[in-house]
Design a protein around this nucleic acid. Structure first.
Lengths: 215, 215
DNA sequence: CGTCGCTTTGATAGGCGTCAAGTGTCGTGG
DNA sequence: CCACGACACTTGACGCCTATCAAAGCGACG
């Protein structure tokens, strides 16, 4: 429904030469896997166990209700790690948003990765809990403001912020419809808070205003 | 605003004789601390580091917006552990909902608790992410249904479910107002899905209906 | 240059929040 | 044991925010 069927694509050779990040000593490091836009990285119900680090591109983690309603619980940009779960099977879906390179780490059975995983799990927990506040208690404009701040900070706090995902993805992350997201974009643009550089790229003009809205 | 000022109360002697849970070998085990209804266990900004295990009673974990809007990210009932965070300071508030006994574990500096903490962190992460789906994509009746199922399962899946928290707490957990929570309770009662045994105790009559609503 | 999908904009409706007034329950004190 | 008071909960009326339905605009890509 959301994911276009899409096969793994062979990795461009220049990417194969990148050095794997060294944070998972002892784990088997596989070369970078390449996923095209919409490709599934793993699905709910599949066997879990591997770790995934985004080399380039962007990934969405989500869950579905029976009738198709979707909630994206996290976006992962370059450098971030995802895929660890409490159970032996995945509770969520992971999909590439755009052309995305992912490095897969698989710990040999018996290896204890707790020490490396705990900080990642705690970070994710904090993020998720803060996002609960956004979904539970903020209105549309506040949600979008918080989202812009979040995306900006994950990109080094620059004024120019890339939004690799569609309005649909943003809506499903913020618990809004695509129309509401679009209207809020327009309102923030008209207020001079942001500028739309292109469909998927904004410039933050009044960061203070965004910050005040986001909390 | 939400918490009544309330001091720690000396522990009844019969509780002091309980054996500490053995899941945190190596950690310093303190006796059970007793908190009365509304008492603060820790506050946002305080130094973190200890672990808390609920012996009896119930605890709410929450965050506030500047204007006082509150989002409860989790309830913790007897047997559950909370208090671990990514940073050295707490990002959240923890309060006793009712008279509550909490055992405090403090690992000696240098001790690595990753192995014990990781499963707890992952469990919490899964819970939070599933709650995101509820807050982001479910309507009032679905949220309450999901809440009843969650509370039932945390109490052994029995028909009779105790709700130690107020409607206000439930609202702040589900991203609803107290009035909406109350109206949904009434609707579910009128539909014969639940019975209200008392203000804070329900009986689940049609579990299947609740399950179908909750997802 | 045409087509398809994504985004924007508009009109309308409904669900939930807000404000307000009961009703009930529990704890305290007489 | 009963009466009282405070607080929590319920119920009602109304309005607003956001979802829904619909159509037009825009951009990317073949």
């Amino acid at each position: 429904m959301y994911a276009q069927a899409s096969a793994k694509i062979e990795l461009p050779s220049y990417l194969l030469q990148q050095n794997p990040a060294a944070i998972f000593d002892g784990a088997t490091v596989q070369p970078v896997s390449f996923f095209s836009a919409g490709a599934e990285i793993y699905a709910q119900g599949e066997k879990a166990g591997a770790l995934y680090q985004v080399e380039f591109g962007a990934v969405r983690i989500y869950r579905l209700l029976a009738d198709g309603r979707r909630q994206i619980s996290a976006f992962h940009l370059a450098g971030e790690t995802f895929g660890f779960e409490a159970d032996p099977t995945h509770h969520f879906f992971a999909e590439a948003i755009n052309a995305t390179g992912v490095r897969v780490f698989r710990a040999p059975s018996g290896t204890d990765m707790s020490r490396q995983l705990l900080p990642l799990a705690l970070k994710g927990l904090t993020r998720a809990q803060e996002h609960l506040l956004v979904l539970g208690r903020q209105n549309a404009i506040e949600r979008v403001a918080a989202f812009f701040i979040e995306m900006s900070e994950s990109q080094g706090g620059l004024r120019q912020v890339e939004l690799p995902m569609s309005r649909n993805d943003i809506g499903d992350y913020l618990g809004l419809t695509i129309e509401t997201v679009s209207r809020v974009f327009t309102r923030l643009r008209e207020k001079g808070v942001i500028r739309l550089l292109s469909l998927r790229s904004i410039e933050i003009i009044k960061r203070d205003t965004l910050l005040a809205m986001g909390e």
